[in-house]
Amino acid sequence: MVWRKAASFDRSRASAATWIYTIARNKRIDLLRRTGRPAIDVEDWLTIFTPEEGSADKSVAAGQTYTRVKELMEGLSADQLTVIRMAFFEDKTHTAIAKELRLPLGTVKSRIRLALGRLREALQKDEET
């Protein structure tokens, strides 16, 4: 499956791990939605990561190492880390996370916003260097 999609891989845009994560995620979405007709083709989702030619944003999805991401996550508060881990490892929406943790939706939203703010800032710096 992965190598059949090799034509959509551009190593200047994404690390191999990011690319494989994208394909695995899209495949899962595709399977979940397979209820009679193809919903969104996997390829359509992949094109999202291939902006138009001449786009000023060249650094999208630059390779991040596990060590670096772990380091960044350690910089988050325990509360923020919990919601981010649930999002990535348990495949839960922020609404489902709020329900499971019995927290108001607003609390979960603000934890995600704070965590993403920090991650965004650090990853942006990585991409600039």
Partner: peptide
């Protein structure tokens, strides 16, 4: 893109 890179890592 960055969140996907985090997922990949």
């Amino acid at each position: 893109g960055r969140l996907t890179a985090v997922g990949g890592a």
